[in-house]
Amino acid sequence: MNWYPIKLTTHINKYVFGGRLIQERLSKANLPDSIVAKTWEISDYQDKTGIVTNGNFAGKTLHDLVEAYPDELVGVGWRGPHFPIL
């Protein structure tokens, strides 16, 4: 397998708290004009799993990759239902 830097979609959490600092300090683009409490840059949590946006894996979810390539993504011998980092 020819591995490359995988880019994922970002899940955006909006709550009553938060502001615009994520966009301003981190220069994050494509955020809504409303309050952004946090973003999940790498996520395989329930219905909030990231979707690959580039390369050969484009369109697949992080969860798809974790199931197909656990040793390569997490480490040799690791097995679990979800990518272990949120």
Results as ranks from 00 to 15, higher is better:
Phe57Trp: 06
Ile51Asp: 09
Asn2Tyr: 09
Gly59Cys: 03
Trp40His: 10
Glu24Lys: 04
Ala58Ser: 14
Ile42Phe: 06
Gly50Met: 00
Pro32Leu: 02
Thr53Leu: 03
Gly80His: 08
Leu21Ser: 13
Met1Gly: 12
Gly80Met: 06
Ala58Leu: 08
Thr9Asp: 09
Ile85His: 14
Gln46Leu: 01
Ala37Glu: 04
Lys38Glu: 03
Ser43Gln: 01
Asp71Ser: 04
Ile6Pro: 07
Lys14Trp: 00
Asn2Pro: 08
Pro32Gln: 03
Tyr45Phe: 07
Gly80Glu: 04
Leu73Pro: 14
Pro81Ala: 11
Lys48Pro: 00
Asp64Lys: 05
Arg20Ser: 04
Ser27Gly: 11
Asn30Met: 12
Thr49Lys: 02
Leu73Trp: 13
Thr39His: 05
Val74Trp: 02
Ile12Lys: 09
His63Tyr: 08
Ile35Pro: 04
Glu24Thr: 07
Ile85Met: 12
Ser34Asn: 04
Phe17Lys: 07
Ile35Asp: 04
Trp3Phe: 15
Pro84Trp: 09
Tyr15Cys: 00
Thr61Ala: 01
Ala58Tyr: 05
Ile12Gly: 02
Asn13Glu: 07
Gly80Trp: 13
Ala29Gln: 08
Asn13Val: 02
His82Tyr: 12
Arg79Gly: 12
Ala29Cys: 03
Asn13Thr: 11
Val74Cys: 11
Leu62Tyr: 06
Gly75Tyr: 03
Pro5Gln: 10
Tyr45Met: 02
Thr53Cys: 02
Leu26Met: 15
Ala68Asp: 15
Asn2Met: 14
His63Asn: 06
Val66Ser: 01
Leu65Asn: 01
Tyr69Ile: 11
